[in-house]
Amino acid sequence: MTPENNNDKELFEMWQAATLSDPNDAARLARAIERRTQSFDRTVFWRNFREYAAGAAITICFLVLAVRFPQLRLTAVAGLAAISVVLFYLWRNHRNQAQPDDTADLQSFHAALLARYDHQIRLLRSVKYWYVLPQYLWLLLVVFQTPASRPAARAMLFLLSTAIMAFVVWLNQSYGVRRLQREKQKALEMLRQD
């Protein structure tokens, strides 16, 4: 853009002549970014490794239970199924979640940034179906497999399972959603006015 008058010209010159005193030069910055990327890649690798290792350990435990204790086979298989449902849902959800594109124009970027909050809010609101329900069904199976000769233990296990799952639902749907809504509101306010 060319300056429309002397006043604009003065603004342009002042702005563009301003130098910042910090010693960040391009080569140093480029090296810092390369190091950071490598370190980030390592962090992601080990995080993924830990998650997969934990999943593998649980699967092995259930498989060992199913093979070595035939009376627990149903519980073990159901446990595997419950965990598989949760992990599959998370994996699919993570894969389908669009990240804001850094190269998009600013208005599209604003919209994508806000859509991220909506996506997370939807995820938390539906937690009772994809996270709690499979695990609760599995816990109910465990409860009903507890010998009928021990009704107190059965009742206690049932109440405990129900209370924990109800707490998880409350934590996500009330506290978690409210927190995300506040964050979204802050982001909206920032976009309107800094």
């Binding site: 342009f12 124009d105 600013l106 208005q107 920032m190 976009l191 800094d194």
Partner: peptide, 28 residues
């Protein structure tokens, strides 16, 4: 002190970008 949208335009303007370029960057 400018709000976000104005600041985006101001910075691009002061860097000497054309209206077309500002349009393409901001989507305004």
């Amino acid at each position: 002190e400018l709000d976000w949208a104005d600041r985006q335009v101001a910075v691009l303007y002061l860097e000497g970008l054309s209206t077309n370029e500002i349009e393409s960057i901001t989507g305004m």
